[in-house]
Nucleic acid binder design. Sequence first.
DNA 1: AAATTTTTGCAAATGATTTGCATTTGAAGG
DNA 2: CCTTCAAATGCAAATCATTTGCAAAAATTT
Lengths: 145, 145
Amino acid sequence: MANIKLPEGYKTTKQRQAILQLLEENVVPMHAEDIYLKLKEKGIELSLSTVYRNLDMLQRKGLVVKAYMLNEDKARFGLASKKNYLVCQECRKIVIIDNCPFEKFKEELIEVHGFDILGHSIEVYGVCPECKSKVSQNFESSQNK
Amino acid sequence: MANIKLPEGYKTTKQRQAILQLLEENVVPMHAEDIYLKLKEKGIELSLSTVYRNLDMLQRKGLVVKAYMLNEDKARFGLASKKNYLVCQECRKIVIIDNCPFEKFKEELIEVHGFDILGHSIEVYGVCPECKSKVSQNFESSQNK
DNA sequence: AAATTTTTGCAAATGATTTGCATTTGAAGG
DNA sequence: CCTTCAAATGCAAATCATTTGCAAAAATTT
């Protein structure tokens, strides 16, 4: 299943593997507590602090991206390799964005400002077609490497 | 200083005005506490909770944007009208991005996915030319917690 | 300036995330 | 397998940003 290789010096534990596998299965980045509860549900024994400790380590090692969605105050964690997506502010529907237009922009930034670009994050706030016809208001976003 | 008009029903207080003015003066979104300390320094009497309460109200009214920068766990607040910019991960230098390339992308999203795009936010992580030459090999340390 | 409504300050409460520490577990070697 | 030791875990307590209740103070309105 999960075949993400851990950095040198880190051991493979059932909790760690379970966390990575769960992240792999989810398109949308999850809250630490969601991860904890989902895994508990699946019968995996772990504690919330183990979840936090692992996510923190994975994030520092670049395998996981930690981010806050608009109007949320709990961090979300997702695999760094995941794709960009849109989230409808109304119904939370997810739409994967296939071609991130950032690459072209990146060239421009490098050229004009001389910056080395290490990564980016684009958040787009919108309402999907279905909800558009009803009422509307909230948002959301993406990650990339 | 050009003043921002408050939404209907909200009173003009010296604390509120000071907060807005400070946000207006800063290109980079600030932490609630920074705002509190800077204003205290300027001799304005206010409390941290007043700062939070105002930022929250302004954010709900759409005048202020609340966001978390990469590797930070305190929210930052900035005027909704501010421009996009680059931040060097080494020296924190700010470079304003003049032509946001998002407009073209926006058309595409609307066309392909049918989403109504309400707004967006782009964060780019990079290293400026000056820092690139000095510390590029030490970059990892700055990314770790 | 009295009446009414909003704001503020303070302190206490919250809630997410972190940490100290004793115990358990994984990987490596014998 | 069995031992060893660093790495990982669970639990509880600690942190730290942010929120909230309430009485007093400041803005508008009358």
